[in-house]
Design a protein around this nucleic acid. Sequence first.
DNA 1: CAGTGGTCAACTGTCTACAGTTGGTGTGTT
DNA 2: AACACACCAACTGTAGACAGTTGACCACTG
Lengths: 219, 219
Amino acid sequence: MAGATAPLLGLEKKSLREQALSALRTAITSGELEPGRHLVETELSDMLQISRGTLREALRQLEQEGLLSAGPRGRLSVRHLDGKEIRDIFAVRAALESLAVRTLCELPDRASVITSLRSAVDAMAAAAEASLEERIESDLEFHRTLCRLTGNETLLHSWESLEGSIRMSIMFAGIERAVKNMSVDRHHDIVAAIETGNATLARTTVLEHMDVAAANLVA
Amino acid sequence: MAGATAPLLGLEKKSLREQALSALRTAITSGELEPGRHLVETELSDMLQISRGTLREALRQLEQEGLLSAGPRGRLSVRHLDGKEIRDIFAVRAALESLAVRTLCELPDRASVITSLRSAVDAMAAAAEASLEERIESDLEFHRTLCRLTGNETLLHSWESLEGSIRMSIMFAGIERAVKNMSVDRHHDIVAAIETGNATLARTTVLEHMDVAAANLVA
DNA sequence: CAGTGGTCAACTGTCTACAGTTGGTGTGTT
DNA sequence: AACACACCAACTGTAGACAGTTGACCACTG
């Protein structure tokens, strides 16, 4: 986790809600909490050693991220994805990321952007020999960077809201299938397309990338 | 509010959290809670006559919708938008809705879709003489319908997550400016473009519609 | 055997209370 | 008057308890 730089002597204090949030997120996206499973508040609050009120705030956020689905009478369960939903998720993702690259193409000075993206690709290359988890992380980090560099906070926020669903898609399809989408070359193509400044080309490249990615997952 | 059909003798019971959610949403998007204002939990829970725990769940959701921004130490305040952020919001909105129309164009039988959209446009025309609020509602309803008809739940969800920000943009710019975007003709153009099945045309129409809309708001 | 009514356990919705932290204010000292 | 320190009020983080509802299981009755 290279992004977790401690703020110069600042204590690493996260609220219990945030801790619960990431704990549950990883539990779900790792499959520890299998899709369809009913979540019982008292049970979870016992496991995590936090009170129900704190837990409920975290659950509400996960629900809005699309990781949980609400049944009748507030019953929450882990969302179950089918092939169509994965394609739908990737269609939205493609729309967001194509906006990202289009925006980046229109930037007057893309030099620093290109530099950042290249180092993100390099990180993927470095992780290529590492664990599958790390490869996935570096891949997602690349795409998140794509959105962040636009400077459009709303775009970044929307993408991050989708991130949980993306991770669920990966888990649903199985990590073996997912790594087929981690090709360093394909990501280089995206950066190269941005570098040309040709928005149409960049957009097409991203759309195709996502099409292939979704196809790989649901194949 | 044509969408609020009671489910055959079903009682209309909403949880306090949901009630608080809509109360706060309208308070913010109507400007009753002005941008930048600090929100104090105890104060709000007194006003709404609910407990803090219940309120906090609602606040968490509003935060994720982008209506509230979190300061240091959990201090929440009503989000303040500037011109750039409005353009950013509408750029994301344009990306989502252009995906919507593209998807609709690729549908084999668009007849029923066109019918639904036409009635949504008719509703706008009917509201043209009504209050400004109703005009805004019918406009948003049209665009929401655009997303709903695709059958892509993720797309609809993403759009609805953005809806709060869109409403804030409208309020920020002032309703007088916003109504300039409610032209029935322009919305007819979108429907007509979908009817042709020409995805590129439809996409261009929507992108331009959103460009104009954002320009009108920040002018 | 079908159907009815009743009791019980499991959950969620909601509220109140307590603890910890922070920013401000007033007072005393030099 | 300026600075240091101590106290205080305001607010958020968190916990624990109570109430209401639902679904299941079981006995009773026609």
